[in-house]
Every structure is written in C-alpha cells, then in structure tokens.
Write a protein that binds this DNA or RNA. Sequence first.
DNA 1: CGTATTCTTGACTTATATCAATGTCGGTGG
DNA 2: CCACCGACATTGATATAAGTCAAGAATACG
Lengths: 233, 233
Amino acid sequence: MKIDRTVIKSLPLFDRMQDDELDRLLQHASSRRVPQGETVFEQGSPALSFYLLLHGRLKVTQVTPDGQQIIVRVVHPGDLFGFAKALQRPDYPGTAIAAAESVTLGWPTDLWPNFVEHNPRLAVSAMQTIGQRLEEAHMRIREMSTQEVERRVAHTILRLARKAGRREETGIRIDFPISRQDIAEMTGTTLHTVSRILSAWEGKGLVEGGRQKLLVKDAAALEELAEAVKERN
Amino acid sequence: MKIDRTVIKSLPLFDRMQDDELDRLLQHASSRRVPQGETVFEQGSPALSFYLLLHGRLKVTQVTPDGQQIIVRVVHPGDLFGFAKALQRPDYPGTAIAAAESVTLGWPTDLWPNFVEHNPRLAVSAMQTIGQRLEEAHMRIREMSTQEVERRVAHTILRLARKAGRREETGIRIDFPISRQDIAEMTGTTLHTVSRILSAWEGKGLVEGGRQKLLVKDAAALEELAEAVKERN
DNA sequence: CGTATTCTTGACTTATATCAATGTCGGTGG
DNA sequence: CCACCGACATTGATATAAGTCAAGAATACG
C-alpha cells in the first residue's frame, strides 16, 4: 500500500525529521489497511514486525488461560505498538484488533536495532513509551487495588475522552466504537455493572450512551467522581 | 563502603564480564548498607542514581493521592532497580524500602548512557528487565480483573517462594520478613482477608504462618489452588 | 515487664457478581 | 423496503465474596 508522507509528518514523533531520513525509514515500512474487527497480530504468534498506528484505533487484548479476556490498552494514532522484540520477547503478548477501521505502518523486527541507532529521537521516544506503559499499568493496579468500580470507570472514561475525544456541541464524543463490555474489560468488572453505572450517570446528565457510543457531557462532574475521597453521607 | 567483587561476580548479570571491565564499572559505583526499614530512595524525589541490589530484599511501594499504599514489586538480589531516568522520568515513581537488611550498589544516573553503551549485555538485560516488569504488571492486572482473592494470594505466595524461597526440612521458607499487610498490599485486598485465608490454609497444612514469617509446606496444593478453574460444588 | 506491633477471629454490611428476562438498535437478505 | 436476526444493552432479583467494625490474643522489643 502506498504510504502517505503528510500523515506521517504530522505525527510528533516524526515532525522534526529530515526528508531523506524519513525516506530511509519508510523504505522498509509497509502500510496496511485494517478493517474493523480484524487483527494486526495475535497473542502468542512470533513477533515479526513492529508497528506505528497511522489512523484509526486498536484494542490490545489478552486472554487468560481459562478464557477470560481483558483489554490491556487502547492504541491511538501516532503510537508505536507491537515492539515485543525490543523487550527481548519472541512473540506478541497480546492481540491487536481494530476497534475502528485503521491504517498501520509496519517494519520487520530485525530492523529495530538499526531503527533506534540511526534515530536517537525514536530510541528515546520508544523508551518513553515503554516507561509510560509501565506507569499506566501501575496506575491501573493502584486503581484496582484501592478504588471502587464507579471511580475506576470514571477514570477510564476520562482517559478515553482525553486520548480519543472529539469536541461536539453537547460534549466530548469518544471517537471510536466502544461497547459496555469493552469498558468492563478495561476496568476489571462486568458489562452489567458498567451498564448500571452509565445508566445512573445518564440520569444525572453526565454522559449520553448508545450502542457502542459514548458522549461525555460533564467532564468536570466525572472528574469529581473520579477523585472523590470516599465519604459516608 | 568497600565493594565486594566476589558477590558481584556471582550475579548472572556480571559473571561473564572481564575483570578490567568490571573494575571500570565499579569505579563509579558506591555501595551502601541499608538497615531494615530504611529507604534507598523515595517516591517523587529526583532520580539521581540507579541501583543494583547485592544483598537483602526491598519492597517498592507507591502511595495513592488519598493515602492508600500498594507494593509495586519486591526487589531481589541481582535485580536492577530505580532506573527511572532510563525511562525518561526525572523522579522515582515509588519508594524503595528495605524489608530486610540490604546492600545496594548505586551509580549516578548520568552514567546510564555510558553504562549501556560500553556494556551491551547490560543494555539487553535492562531491556529484558523492563519487559518483564511490564509483563508482571499485566499479569497482575489480569489476575485482579479475573480471579478471586484466594487465588491471587496463592499466586503471589508461589511467586515469592520461587524468587525468595529457601528450602527447609518441612517446606520452603519465604526468606525475608513479610507481614499479612504486605501480602494484602501485593494482592489488592485487606490484611483481614489475607489472615483468614492463611489461617484456613494453615488448617489444611498448606502453609505455616507466624509473625512476619511464612513457610510453604505444600507448594503443589497451592499451585492447584492458584490454577483451579472455578467450579461449583 | 509493659508497651507496641502484628495477627486472629467473629459479627455484620455492602459492593458487585451472577442469574434471568426483556428491550432495542442496526444491518442483511428476502 | 421492511421484517427479522443477532449483537448489544438495560434492568430486576438474588447471591456471595470480601470489606468494615470491633475486640482480643500472641509475639517481639526496649
């Protein structure tokens, strides 16, 4: 697939890169359109490539030995993903599935050392990404250890609004299809509980739901819910 | 403090390193004895050094904004820790506190680039460590999302036995002082629940408790508990 | 020894899962 | 084009795991 240079140059990761440098980089890359519901790679398969998300939205999931699924993270445009090999893993630890129609850019894994050597900014950025990833994981562990479901859902939705929100007249729209089940898998609860919580919020005018849709109408109030120190009343 | 070469050479990380190379490395390192209960560094303070644990056992904790504490991980001898700067963080994300009397080896953070450049094995090892760290975090998220407390505690204790176990006549001793509260903070529960679970296990002869003590008497049975697919009976 | 941690155990409460039924949306094919 | 089907969502009733509250016992320590 033909690679669109302008899209790439708009990403913070590449905006200050020379044209010839960029060309060298893209030379070995291949672009791919991933329709909604299809996977980029699957848990356990050999890590042959690492990727950059150009467009769309991916969910990275893991399945536990006994068949339960969780969503490890959401990949947003501009994010590097699938660089298992950089962490000395031979295979992908999770499955990357397109939540919305997406476009990825992929490089063969063996190019990674080369990649970072010639592009120190990328090396730094990759490290940063991994560091953030680790922090996010710890944040989630903290939340799951100490907060009740409602607060966790509030946090999760606020993070989504920040990373995948699009302003609309009446609020912030989560800009890709997301189900109650998805939110449950991100917060460690069941779709039933998520549904109840969202219904309650909708009653109070904080959000507006819909089939695979979510609109945050009152982020400030959600923020408050998320931070609220538990108090008896 | 004088640095003991033989201890360092016994670590897998350094065992194949040349003597002169090792000398160069140790030249800038400083060793420190950390009495039980004291900290190596604290959450939020500037990341001036990165460390290697030579001896003892550390707990890395984080405190949430509202004052709850969790144990992020346990540092075992031979582990690198506190390399926040490598992940482009200016400060330590957690507090490292000695669970038992410990000895650390520390280098100034600015030496990190140098460190990895001259020691590719270390660079690889560091990457591996971070990758493992991330995986462990995801494993914990998976566990907290999908498993009941008893199974999580079983998993946690088995991992401790693996990483910090010492064979004894009657079982595997967790080789550093660990309280019920600690286990609770590692599994995302309360010390009460941990206490009840351990009492129950003690009744069945699986473990033997004690003040800040833990002996695993029947690892196989614990394993079974940990893996057990939930079934109604 | 007495004082302070750490641990245990019981009684009670509650958040959240589970079970079950029904409703609603949106795409597909007749 | 509309009816139907499957996926997604809602909502009530009930169960239960685990938290909270409370008291006391055991152990270590100065």
